[in-house]
Amino acid sequence: MNISSQNIGFAVLFLLGLILAFSPVDEMNVSKVADKELLLSQLHSQSNYVEPEEVADWIINKEPGLQIVDIRTGEDFAKYHIPGAVHIPLERLLDKASLEMLNSDGTIVLASNGNTKASQAWLLLKEKGYDDVYALHGGMNYWVEIFSAPKKPQAPYTDDEIFRYQFRVAAGPVMMGKQVVPQQQTTVTPRKTIKPRRRAAKKKVDEGC
């Protein structure tokens, strides 16, 4: 009998594929519980936070898959929330209905009044297996502060500070969902729009031949 090496290769491939088709591949990877040590180190290095400017940038860019989750009380949410945010109070975060609302494929940004509750919610969601979750740094208090009345940087400022200031001035009206206030006269004339920076940390890597 004459068996070519090509046919042996095909047979092996076919067999391996057949084994996979009848094996519990998907049941094996339910180890969705995040690595505790890793979470701890992320909390420690504060890499669980995302800066408000970056979130504003994503909103302006209509970043696909972005979901802003407001975990404050309903009262606070009704007063003001980030444009496009969904409301899930912290105590109901792990309810079935809430988890169904969460966009598990996209980027989730958690917003509370400050840092603490958002970080706690971050930890809970990470343990639930949500990969792409961030806590809004400074919370809604800081968000409102910098977008409703951005402070001009003091005299010896760096380029980065002035850039952030310009961005806050430009993005502020949209972020606050308010009528556009006339631009006050400043020594630095903000360009009409600040070209938003692409997110640096999560830049996706294109691959291909």
Binding site: F14, G17, A21, F22, V25, D105
Partner: peptide, 25 residues
Amino acid sequence: GNVRLSDVLNVSSGVVAFAAVVLAI
């Protein structure tokens, strides 16, 4: 989103793998 064929077709990834092998052959 970050989907795989098995998510879209709602079958196990092993079945998709087998289909890919057959397709390749």
